[in-house]
């Protein structure tokens, strides 16, 4: 589903943010990418939805080398990849419903489509009763649920989460990761970049560890630290 082949990248000629990355994530997997701040976790995710293009190597997503996509093909890649961020990136003047609907409007969904998909996704993330609320009326955990709903409403086969629990308390963090797990069980490939040791340890999923821009460990059913 996602494959990095000998990927190296640096920001404006500085020291590499990623070096010789080789990583293969199969369809339906749940993977944690862990490491300290600045080790290249976010950079790795940004290459999957082609926010960044490697200096060297290839990034294959759903069978296509995304480094070779023409600019006008990028939006269609992004419809295959939902992305969730630490700061939620919700539009403050739109309600929960409108924030989620926004992702559908952008791809030209009909009104019927919206009324069919949005209640279903709000129910999946457990926030149906807040559909008329604005982001400032929600807790951090609820905001993240809305953000996940927006990323998934278009039914992408891949969900990337970049520090999704960075702004949340431990219990809410665990709830969010449980939600991501539930989404994974439904068939979505989920990749979570985090340095939250607690949630990684509690989930026992595949863990890829980055240190100094390189993968130093890739282990199934692992904890944050090598046992």
């Amino acid at each position: 589903m996602i494959e990095f082949q000998d990927v190296t990248f640096s920001y404006n000629g500085s020291a590499p943010a990623l070096r010789d990355i080789n990583l293969k994530i199969e369809k339906g997997e749940f993977v944690f990418v862990v490491g300290q701040t600045g080790t290249g976790k976010s950079t790795l995710l940004r290459m999957v939805y082609r926010e960044l293009v490697p200096d060297r190597g290839r990034v294959i997503v759903a069978g296509r080398d995304v480094t070779k996509l023409r600019p006008r093909e990028v939006p269609y890649l992004r419809r295959q990849v939902g992305v969730v961020f630490q700061d939620f990136k919700l539009l403050p003047k739109k309600t929960v419903w409108e924030n989620v609907a926004f992702a559908l409007e952008v791809i030209g969904a009909t009104k019927q489509d919206k009324f069919r998909r949005i209640p279903r996704i709000l129910s999946l993330v457990g926030i149906s009763e807040k559909s008329d609320s604005f982001p400032h009326q929600l807790s951090g955990g609820e905001c993240q649920r809305v953000s996940i709903a927006r990323a998934l409403v278009n039914d992408p086969p891949i969900l990337l989460a970049d520090e999704p629990t960075g702004n949340l308390d431990p219990q809410t963090s665990f709830d969010i990761v449980q939600l991501l797990n539930k989404i994974n069980i439904r068939g979505t490939t989920v990749v979570v970049a985090t340095h939250d040791r607690d949630i990684v340890d509690r989930m026992h999923k595949r863990v890829v560890t980055l240190v100094d821009a390189q993968i130093v460990r890739d282990q199934e059913r692992a904890t944050y630290q090598e046992e």
């Binding site: 939805y49 939006p75 269609y76 992702a103 952008v106 927006r150 278009n154």
Partner: peptide, 16 residues
């Protein structure tokens, strides 16, 4: 800017 960033993220075409 924020809205445009989200549009780009969720796959809006350039003309949209």
């Amino acid at each position: 800017e924020q809205e445009i960033g989200i549009m780009q993220l969720v796959g809006a075409t350039a003309w949209y």
